[in-house]
Design a binder for these strands. Structure first.
Lengths: 210, 210
DNA sequence: AATATAAACGGACAATTGTCCGTTAGTCAA
DNA sequence: TTGACTAACGGACAATTGTCCGTTTATATT
């Protein structure tokens, strides 16, 4: 197999045959339409196949499961989010300040894509539980946060004994979609409150100035 | 038969009829046996019913879903954990120190009950996503952490502007079973490392001494 | 254009979860 | 003890996910 460039999404190994591409498009269109109409949770995969006019085999060949389909639907949003994040995060200024900005941006991403993110999460059950974390999207976010924390260490803004890797997971998981929905809808917390609390956690990472 | 009702499963309204109690016992025994034999994930609900010698209606009347059954199975462990936690947490000493102890204990609980906790988590999909957080077990932990944080505020160990509620969710979610399994098995992190990182987060909550 | 071949297609099928409803049997009061 | 009331029972049934496999078709080659 020819080595493909390290693309953001690992779909399309060689080149898609024309009928395959057509099927992919039909399925994604149908899914968008049905999700829009009745909500993500209320639409079954078979229904999507029927609406798209493709068989189950085709449907599942293109998208391993509903979560993968939702990920594909999220595609552009993810690209935008990652692009903006990488740009802002690569800019000048204090690393911890940029980290705080990033946490706010991630909350906004949650806010805008809650339904699809929830479906992605739902599909990560049983044997696929690990996929929640081991995927290009999460790993990208993780690298980004680690990078910021390491930079904060180097500039002596953060204590040197802090564990950047672990902390990155902690910060990202504090904004996982399940907890976020629970805090927003069940506890009635405002977005700014959630983000604010997390920023105060980051504030605690700072070296105490003498 | 151990006292039921204070765990994750719903409280028993009046009193269980004798045949109902027998069914409950048979189902739990069968589940324990099969889970032990082949692992939680590899056993279906129907199989448990068959092994227990009860019909599907009975099975689902007693346990709403596989997660509820696993919660019941976790019952005693949960009791022990909660009891020990409440005792230690109610003791003397610095609140933040007790919080740190609690985080270690929670990690140990994860370690000991990973498979069942994973199944409980898996069953909290779709419409039941909220149940991951809105259940007596989680709420108990949450109250306990909030209590500690509030105490730390009162004794001026923690900055007064910290949001105890949000922070409690953050700390607890940092030890959710999915992330924990990912960090332990996928990233190969040691338990002490995970707990240590979280304790350093708590350390950051402290008021900076002048 | 004809042909070979591998990818893609479609829909039947298997597995699992969860519900429904007619039947059975504990429990309590007379 | 008897009888009635109602919780509990059991298994068929519906819905959904995901797989399998025989058939079709796009594409590269001659």
């Amino acid at each position: 197999m020819p080595e493909r460039g390290a693309g953001v999404s690992e779909a399309i190994p060689k080149r898609e045959r024309s009928d395959a591409a057509r099927s992919r498009g039909k399925v994604m269109d149908a899914a968008r339409r049905l999700f829009d109409e009745r909500g993500v949770d209320a639409v079954s995969m078979h229904e999507i196949g029927r609406e798209a006019g493709v068989g189950q085999g085709t449907l599942y060949r293109r998208f391993e499961h509903k979560g993968a389909l939702c990920s594909a639907l999220l595609g552009e949003k993810i690209e935008d989010f990652q692009e903006e994040s990488r740009r802002r995060v690569g800019s000048r200024g204090a690393a911890l300040g940029r980290l705080k900005w990033f946490l706010g941006r991630l909350a906004k991403f949650n806010e805008e894509n809650g339904a699809l993110l929830g479906a992605v999460r739902d599909s990560a059950v049983g044997g696929r539980r690990i996929e929640m974390h081991r995927n290009p999207f999460y790993e990208g976010l993780r690298e980004l946060v680690i990078e910021l924390l390491e930079e904060a260490k180097e500039t002596r803004d953060m204590r040197a004994d802090m564990d950047s890797e672990c902390l990155a997971d902690t910060l990202l998981d504090a904004l996982n979609i399940d907890l976020y929905v629970y805090q927003r809808q069940e506890l009635g917390m405002e977005r700014e409150r959630i983000v604010g609390a997390l920023r105060s956690v980051v504030e605690g990472f700072r070296t105490t100035e003498p």
